[in-house]
């Protein structure tokens, strides 16, 4: 099976005056297409930084990332944006829906950016899949946290991404809602055959993925395969 994400000797440092803070320290791993993958670790271990670098939202200090065969450091900001649009789906802890757009319009945006025909009906189908067809005309502030995360899930799958990055997807949700959202993530992922990269400190959630890497102080301290 070929890889979709290659991370090679990735290091990220920040300068604060004369001090240098190393957030990620020579991290390397590869993720196969269609795999489910979790990055766990305590707060400040570099999980979110790693996710941002893998998705091309940030540039590493040294090392490189190859996403779906594209070496991200060779692309400019707009080329990386285009790659994200065609290849990547995102789910965030704080949902990150556009507040001025309705649920339906939020789901349509990636397809419209990609000039996909029939964006509206496809977005309606996706909202129906996450159980929010009736609420399509509501704005984010009119939806509950769980509902917002489901809209965000529908948006994440709207462009048939090859890889889905989820950053603490249940971090802002109660237990019952979390369960529903997690089930949806795994169901939709399985249905679409998408690679899933999950950043969490919920070890129970991480155990549902095929492989878990543990970060501490910016280094990989464990890399474990889960048996299905």
């Amino acid at each position: 099976m070929s890889s979709i994400l290659d991370v090679h000797n990735l290091t990220k440092t920040y300068k604060n005056g004369s001090n240098t803070l190393t957030v990620l320290d020579e991290v390397s791993f590869t993720i196969e297409k269609g795999a489910t993958f979790a990055i766990v670790g305590p707060s400040g271990s570099g999980k979110t930084t790693l996710l941002g670098l893998c998705a091309g939202l940030d540039r590493p200090t040294t090392g490189w990332v190859s996403l779906d065969g594209h070496e991200l450091h060779k692309l400019n900001e707009d080329q990386r944006a285009a790659l994200r649009n065609q290849t990547v789906g995102f789910i965030f802890q704080n949902f990150q829906l556009i507040p001025t757009l309705t649920a339906l319009e939020n789901v349509m945006v990636p397809m419209e950016l990609n000039k996909t025909a029939g964006a509206k009906s496809k977005a309606m189908d996706l909202l129906a899949k996450v159980g929010l067809a009736e609420r399509h005309h509501h704005y984010p502030t009119q939806l509950s946290g769980g509902e917002q995360q489901r809209v965000s899930l529908a948006r994440a799958f709207s462009n048939h991404p090859k890889i889905l990055f989820a950053d603490e997807p249940t971090g802002n949700l109660d237990e019952e809602t979390s369960e529903k959202v997690v089930n949806l993530i795994f169901d939709l992922n399985k249905e679409a055959g998408t690679t899933l990269v999950l950043v969490t400190h919920d070890l129970e959630l991480a155990q549902r993925t095929q492989r878990v890497i543990r970060l501490k102080g910016g280094k990989i301290v464990a890399d474990q395969l889960n048996v299905a």
Partner: peptide, 16 residues
């Protein structure tokens, strides 16, 4: 700023 960041994240180019 946050709205633009989301748009950029899901694939909108800077000029867009």
């Amino acid at each position: 700023l946050d709205t633009v960041a989301v748009l950029r994240c899901i694939g909108a180019k800077g000029p867009q």
